[in-house]
Design a protein around this nucleic acid. Structure first.
Lengths: 344, 344
DNA sequence: CTGTGTAAAGCAAACGGTTCCATAAGGAGG
DNA sequence: CCTCCTTATGGAACCGTTTGCTTTACACAG
């Protein structure tokens, strides 16, 4: 039915090994033979069987993305899709296919990863989120399988990872507000167990300190990456005696909550409260007013993750002494929500 | 290095074929042998090599999703991610892996599909969007490869597809407004070359006609699935002498544009203009006011697509005389944007 | 005791490639 | 003219499984 290397060989009057060599560009094949074989391959519509190839070469030219379990929320969805696009684009440029996998729980996830890697269906794995993925990461590490983490992990120093410099990003965001003339700046953080929350908080603190600005404890509130947190934080802040004139929010969704609340109370943004947040989701520029945000380059994050992984697959001895943490640059996008210099 | 079926066989003192049969639950294996082999497999940490398996079985237990090219827009991203989740979940339940592929242009896309299918890397394909995919669809059809289309195609009657009943959905949306007491209802459509635009327009028309309501041409405007279209449509409608009291928009993004415009002009929703739109993206309930929307069950669309495809892979003779168009139910979610009964 | 039926397991040939080793044909050097 | 390289190709083993066909070993009927 399907045309194999042998069929091509027979028709071309050469041996299968010759055809194989033509395919792989082996140096010791005469130009004439090579051309002849190529023509015949074309004629017969030959496509190499990847399974057979993989079997002997012990290589699949494909990688796998492990999706965290639920991923139901808006930002997650946008984030993952953007990441996937970056990964798929880069992988495809490098000639790799991308598998998506996920499990209902950590056990299933581990089983899937093990099956894919030990079963030689993929050459490496991209892990999203640095939750407490101990089991999966341990498996990958002890098995010596190539993998890269998107997001930072503090537990493992020696694994490949791609991430932003969230400390610096938060520093930049805060500093932007300071340079606009703000002195009382609030911060809405995320869950304290996430490294990203901690890093961003640290960046905020550093900026405030370095400018000698006061940092009241009541100006820092914890929340989730959700609208509600913003809404609550807003009403808390606005009732403070000496309330902040600006705030940094750990995620754009939080800003939307803040915005909604301020709107209901007839406050004006940025005049009554200036806002900067993180992630620059497509909606940030669509809200009214548009929100200033730190673009973390999600697509780029995915693109680089794929690049790093494939590199590590192709030359496993990547211990060049170089770093194994890759930092994707961020970029502050200033929009209306922070374009106001407060009078003293 | 890795443990193969032969290693297991040797250690168990049986032949490789016996091990293989244990694996596949062959009936003619004694319980005793089966148990012994299983224990040893466990001990040695044996995982079957998928490539070898695929090579002989001519089956890969994996399917492929073809992502349309750019997919940069907000809705696309949300849509695709949701769809992917549905597909991955179902596939994983059926024991299939999912590959994601895309091409920069139609030619690349065709090459990728051809390579994957002819190269026996996947067993079937899920196509998203029914653009003028002639080349890819033609290839799949003429090659007899299993595939399913998400979205409707009018050109091909005999291919598997999963879709909503957009005509009925638009009918329901329109009818909802009518039953609230609206009589002058506008419609903001999408690009006329998309079937989904045409279907939704048709549903609107049917509803209006069936209630004997007048349909002025000026109440129907064409646009894109973007905010801007909504913004423009809004200002057009509001300047009409006898303007609509409600409108149906082909996509939630359009509604957001309408909302923004009305807000700027100090109009109130739903009192001055009631709104219903389609797709029920996560933001619909977060805007102010929350927007009534038709939920089209994107996750379900993906879930079903995977199901249908895998079924068709497993028993190719799926011409049971049954339909090959699978319709996913939609659901009207009524929110504040349409909760107002206009006085005459 | 021989013939037959049946259950359990082994043998070996695929599946479609790759690659090491061998071979044949020139051409160069002595 | 013979030997030795070099270059282009062929042969065959192997990658890890599956599976049709045998073989083996009993058990039982005749």
């Amino acid at each position: 039915m399907t045309v194999t290397i042998k069929d091509v060989a027979k028709k071309a009057g050469v041996s299968p090994s010759t055809v194989s060599r033509v395919l792989s560009g082996h140096p010791r094949i005469s130009l004439e033979t090579s051309r002849k074989v190529k023509v015949i391959m074309e004629e017969m519509g030959y496509t190499p069987n990847m399974m057979a190839k993989s079997l002997v070469s012990k290589t699949t030219n494909s990688i796998c993305i492990i999706l965290p379990k639920p991923a139901e929320e808006l930002f997650s969805n946008l984030f993952f899709m953007e990441l996937i696009r970056g990964i798929v684009t880069q992988s495809s440029r490098s000639g790799y296919d991308v598998l998506i996998s996920s499990g209902a729980n950590e056990k299933e996830e581990l089983e899937a990863v093990s099956r894919l890697l030990k079963g030689r269906r993929v050459d490496g794995v991209i892990l999203l989120y640095s939750r407490k993925d101990d089991a999966v990461i341990d498996f990958l590490q002890s098995g010596g399988y190539p993998f890269v983490l998107v997001g930072r992990s503090d537990r493992y120093e020696d694994i490949l990872s791609v991430d932003n410099d969230n400390i610096m990003a938060a520093y930049d965001a805060t500093n932007h507000l300071i340079s606009m003339g703000h002195e009382r700046i609030g911060f809405v953080s995320g869950p304290p167990n996430l490294i990203v929350s901690r890093d961003r908080l640290e960046g905020y603190r550093t900026a405030m300190q370095s400018k000698g600005l006061e940092m009241k404890n009541e100006w820092i509130v914890e929340g989730e990456f959700l609208q509600d947190s913003g809404y609550r934080a807003m009403s808390f802040f606005m009732n403070l005696p000496n309330r902040p004139t600006a705030l940094v929010a750990v995620d754009d969704m939080v800003s939307f909550g803040v915005l909604r609340g301020l709107n209901e109370l007839k406050y004006k943004v940025p005049e009554d409260l200036a806002i900067v947040s993180f992630n620059n989701i497509p909606l940030s520029e669509l809200s009214s007013p548009p929100i200033s945000s730190i673009d973390i380059g999600i697509y780029h994050l995915g693109y680089t993750a794929s690049q790093v992984l494939i590199q590590s697959i192709q030359k496993p001895g990547n211990q060049d002494g170089y770093t194994n943490r890759f930092v994707i640059p961020h970029r502050l996008i200033v929009r209306e929500s922070s374009m106001y210099a407060p009078g003293k």
